[in-house]
Amino acid sequence: MSGDFWSNTISALISGFFGGGIISLITTYWTLKQKEKEEKKLENILVLNTLISIRSELSTVFNRYQNQIGNLLENTPSRNVPPIYIPISGDYFPIYRNNTNIIGKISNEQTIENLVFSYTLSSGLIDSLLFNNSLYEKFTALTAEQRRSNDKSTFDKLSIEIDELKIEIQDYWDKIRISHYELKRIASLAYTGITSEIDKRKNL
């Protein structure tokens, strides 16, 4: 066989090897990029839907709170507040609690801080309202005991305790009102930040 034959054969084999290898590399790269793109798309959909749910939970819980408790706090200065029982029950934030891993994917750090702080303030306010309820229960117990008392000395002693408790309730009401206004401010910032994040992710 001639030298040209072997030269052409080897050249063809080399060209085929490198040509096929390059095509294979390009195909693999394109496949990986498409997979990465699809994974990012799916993650964005997951984060988007979760944030919409968290925003809905935040809005629903806060509006309910404002109607049932917030308006009372805003319209009742401590000097006018009677001993009052405020019903508190249930788990108010199941969506947030079960999706805290998603919060870190929010692009704006301040929004993350405001959102986390909103739930921290909410938990603290719930504890404060529960303590207020314990003061109310103590007040009702003292007044009931006073009504049953037939001894003037005991009656007068209970009157002093009741008056002191009323002052404690009024002072504590002031603290609850301060927490309320801070929660209202931070929750509004968190809602605005989440809405901005949702709008941004809708356009990805």
Rank of each mutant, 00 (worst) to 15 (best):
S78I: 02
P77Q: 09
I103V: 14
I186Q: 03
G19D: 01
G19S: 01
Y119A: 06
K105Q: 08
T76K: 05
Y29P: 02
R201F: 02
S149W: 08
K166D: 03
W6L: 13
F155W: 05
T100E: 09
I103R: 03
E197A: 07
I86F: 13
T28A: 15
S15T: 09
I10E: 10
S153Q: 13
A141F: 09
T27H: 13
I169Q: 03
S153R: 14
N67S: 15
F17L: 15
Y119E: 09
L130Y: 08
Y119F: 15
K41P: 02
I102Q: 03
R64N: 15
Y92Q: 12
E168L: 03
T154V: 12
K35P: 01
G19P: 03
F131W: 11
Q34P: 10
T76W: 05
K157M: 12
S118L: 13
N67P: 03
S2T: 12
E43L: 11
K175L: 10
E39I: 10
L48Y: 08
S179C: 03
T27K: 10
L115M: 04
Y92F: 13
T195Q: 15
I167E: 05
L130N: 15
N101C: 00
G20H: 02
V47A: 06
I160V: 15
W6N: 11
R97P: 03
Y96S: 01
Y85L: 06
Q66S: 12
A190G: 10
Y191W: 07
L58Q: 07
I45K: 14
N132T: 04
G70H: 06
S89Q: 07
V81Y: 01
Y29H: 11
S196D: 15
I186M: 09
F93M: 12
Y65R: 06
F5D: 08
I103K: 01
L135D: 06
E38F: 14
E168P: 00
I160A: 14
S89W: 01
K33T: 08
I176L: 14
G104K: 01
I178S: 15
E113Q: 07
F139Q: 02
L165P: 00
Q146D: 02
S24R: 12
L58P: 12
V47T: 09
L13Q: 07
I186F: 05
I10K: 10
L46I: 02
R177T: 09
E113M: 03
I112G: 01
D91P: 09
L204W: 14
K105V: 03
W6E: 07
K35R: 09
L115W: 01
W173C: 08
L42H: 04
Q110E: 15
E164H: 02
Y29M: 08
E38W: 05
M1A: 08
L204M: 11
G90C: 07
E145D: 08
